[in-house]
């Protein structure tokens, strides 16, 4: 591999076939009840989503997964996958993440094969794990020799970009508004990555009760664009 930027760009593309375009992870509830109704109200929710869900759970999982790959603690990786699944109280969000994770493991392991992916596929087949995007980003980055902060940053950007694309369709927002959010959010995304790098294991998985309720309530929304 001559340029590690290319695979990272490929993985962070919102067109990457992960299935993330079908999931709002509770944000559609905020659209449905009017909390999110324009560009700035969406950006507010997105920022809170990143500062909580990404920082304490998904992004932190990506960092831990990378560090455990570095020290060869593969068993901890599979435990992390199970914890990520157990942390999700709302069915649709849990199943959404599992579906995306499972798909990502299968697609990315074909594109960038590695022994760790072989093992991940094996554990998936045995139903010991469920699949999670955070681990996939960590595995690819580690395999390609990309540093941990870049890995977490790319994962954070991919999450943000797919939520923005979904908001463009769901709120709806103009395409330019969506792209403007992706620019304006960058300092917060950088701070979130710094925060992720400073946390420890006792911080992992801190939930956001309001968001969880929104994710649960999504099951009963009458008209839905998204599966979660």
């Amino acid at each position: 591999m001559t340029n590690v930027l290319f695979p990272m760009l490929q993985m962070s593309d919102s067109q990457f076939p992960s299935g993330a375009f079908s999931h709002s992870f509770g944000i559609e509830t905020y659209i449905s009840n009017g909390t999110v109704h324009d560009s700035s109200s969406f950006q507010n929710v997105l920022e809170l989503f990143l500062m909580n869900q990404l920082v304490y759970t998904d992004g932190l999982a990506c960092r831990f997964a990378y560090e455990w790959l570095e020290s060869g603690k593969l068993d901890q990786l599979w435990e992390l996958d199970q914890s990520l699944y157990a942390l999700q109280m709302a069915r649709e969000t849990r199943e959404g993440n599992r579906r995306i994770g499972d798909r990502l493991v299968k697609v990315v392991s074909t594109l960038y094969p590695s022994p760790v992916f072989e093992k991940y596929l094996d554990e998936l087949k045995k139903k010991n794990v469920y699949g999670h995007g955070a681990l996939v980003f960590a595995i690819v980055s580690h395999h390609l020799g990309i540093d941990v902060e870049t890995a977490v940053s790319c994962y954070g950007f991919a999450t943000t970009s797919s939520l923005v694309q979904n908001a463009v369709r769901g709120v709806p927002l103009g395409q330019t508004d969506g792209q403007r959010i992706l620019v304006e959010i960058q300092p917060l995304l950088t701070r979130s990555v710094e925060r992720i790098m400073s946390l420890d294991e006792s911080d992992f998985g801190i939930g956001s009760p309001g968001l969880e309720i929104a994710q649960m309530q999504h099951e009963t929304i009458n008209v839905r664009l998204f599966m979660s």
């Binding site: 989503f49 909580n52 199970q82 157990a86 109280m89 801190i206 939930g207 956001s208 009760p209 309001g210």
Partner: peptide
Amino acid sequence: LAVYDHLRLKPKDDVRKLLQL
């Protein structure tokens, strides 16, 4: 492990905002 519920309420971080309380 089937369920893992982790809650932390830290009022300094403005717990009353959206997504939190």
